[in-house]
């Protein structure tokens, strides 16, 4: 049997249409990406509230996000603590040689800003790339299609456990990051600038809103990093090159998401708590 279905080729765009396409294409691409992320977020939330994420899978993902990032976070936040205290103390020494408030200000800044955000960025690169590569390779090897054919929802099976694991572990890693950075900064302050440890370990400036702000940021990063990375992985096409692109896209998009969320949440905190 021969079918004769003829489809007329589309007319080429006019010059002004081409201009609009060139200018608007990046915006529409970002818009499409955001729409996909939000749709996946709702689907993942639905799966989580239905209790569809397997407990064993959640524990496995929590281990992968949390325990396997410990060394990475220790090294990164440890060095950040050392560098930050050294730089700030050097400036203070030149202007006003009084270190009494250094530790208190450092701990406040770590809790509300640096610990969750630097941890988020580290998780975005380490875990986000891993999620995109893993799911992307499952897409291009048809394993995701095989899941669908076996009556398994890829969002329930692949995304929801990663989101839950990450939402639990990123705040925990952030708390750990505060501890590591504070201990590293305190050790340097004591060794180089003779700052007494009890002076450095001061919570005088830490208020309730600082802790809430840090935790809200950590939970937000924990939720959105696997969503954005999984969306990149699920959008992978082609072979190994497609997985590579998906991984790169995931790292860029998750890092950008962390910075954007930091800005939005900090702004909201200023409006709500005036801090």
């Amino acid at each position: 049997m021969v079918n004769d279905v003829h489809v007329a080729p589309p007319a080429p765009p006019r010059w002004y249409e081409s201009l609009f396409i060139a200018v608007g294409a990046p915006f529409t691409a970002v818009g499409r990406e955001l729409r996909g992320d939000v749709a996946l977020a709702f689907a993942a939330l639905g799966a989580i509230f239905r209790g569809a994420a397997g407990r064993r899978a959640v524990v496995q993902q929590a281990y992968a996000v949390g325990n396997r990032s410990l060394f990475f976070i220790t090294a990164t936040l440890g060095f950040l603590g050392l560098i930050s205290v050294y730089q700030v103390a050097t400036q203070i020494q030149q202007i006003l040689p009084d270190f009494s408030m250094l530790g208190a200000a450092f701990i406040q800044l770590m809790i509300r800003e640096f610990a969750p955000t630097i941890t988020g960025l580290m998780i975005a690169t380490r875990v986000g790339s891993g999620i995109a590569a893993e799911i992307g390779s499952m897409v291009v090897t048809e394993q995701v299609d095989a899941l669908r054919m076996c009556n398994a929802d890829p969002v329930e099976y692949l995304v929801a456990p990663r989101v839950l694991g990450s939402v639990v572990m990123v705040p925990m890693l952030s708390i750990y990051a505060v501890l590591v950075a504070t201990l590293a900064g305190m050790a340097l302050g004591h060794a180089v600038f003779d700052i007494p440890t009890q002076t450095f370990l001061s919570l005088r400036l830490v208020k309730g809103p600082d802790i809430v702000l840090g935790l809200v940021k950590a939970v937000s990063y924990g939720f959105w990093i696997p969503i954005v990375a999984a969306h990149a992985g699920l959008s992978a096409t082609g072979g190994s090159a497609g997985v590579g692109w998906a991984t790169t896209r995931a790292v860029v998009a998750t890092s950008f998401a962390v910075v954007l969320l930091d800005f939005v949440i900090s702004g909201a905190s200023y409006v709500i708590f005036s801090v």
């Binding site: 090897t141 048809e142 394993q143 299609d145 095989a146 899941l147 054919m149």
Partner: peptide, 13 residues
């Protein structure tokens, strides 16, 4: 009601 044998095996690794 379907069974699907994939070209690239598609076994869950």
């Amino acid at each position: 009601a379907y069974g699907y044998v994939f070209q690239n095996y598609a076994l869950f690794d």
